[in-house]
């Protein structure tokens, strides 16, 4: 699982941008949604999340605003910018290419093992 969690951490930006593509959201909601998708197998640390927010905001991929929920709780919402949409598309493409390549590399290793045995 350590490899998985590392890969997740390595793609935090893509994951967050993907979440924001659906709708504007705030920190806790995003974190909860990620935990739900993963079924509690892996939890993003708050520090990682806020670090990513800062980085993405600096890059101009997301912007934030303070909003009021119907319940009355003040929340800092994040919204994806057009630049962020582009970035997400690019990151997704990069990830897909990487995935293919690693898939190939990993399969070579198992093939060779099989041949040796």
């Amino acid at each position: 699982m350590s490899v998985t969690s590392d890969l997740i951490r390595g793609n935090t930006d893509t994951i967050i941008l993907g979440q924001l593509l659906v709708h504007d959201s705030y920190g806790y909601e995003i974190n909860k949604s990620i935990s739900n998708i993963l079924g509690g197998l892996y939890e993003l640390k708050e520090a990682t999340l806020y670090t990513a927010f800062k980085r993405l905001e600096e890059a101009g991929y997301i912007s934030s605003y303070w909003g009021d929920e119907t319940t009355g709780a003040r929340r800092k919402y994040y919204t994806i910018t057009p630049l962020g949409r582009q970035a997400h598309a690019r990151m997704l493409e990069e990830w897909n290419t990487s995935k293919e390549i690693i898939d190939k590399l990993v399969n070579i290793v198992t093939d060779e093992k099989g041949a040796n045995l």
């Binding site: 390595g10 990069e94 290419t97 990487s98």
Partner: peptide, 15 residues
């Protein structure tokens, strides 16, 4: 810290 992620990063950089 993990080589697998490192490889992905390196690949991204190269790209």
């Amino acid at each position: 810290r993990f080589s697998s992620s490192d490889m992905v990063e390196d690949f991204k950089t190269w790209n």
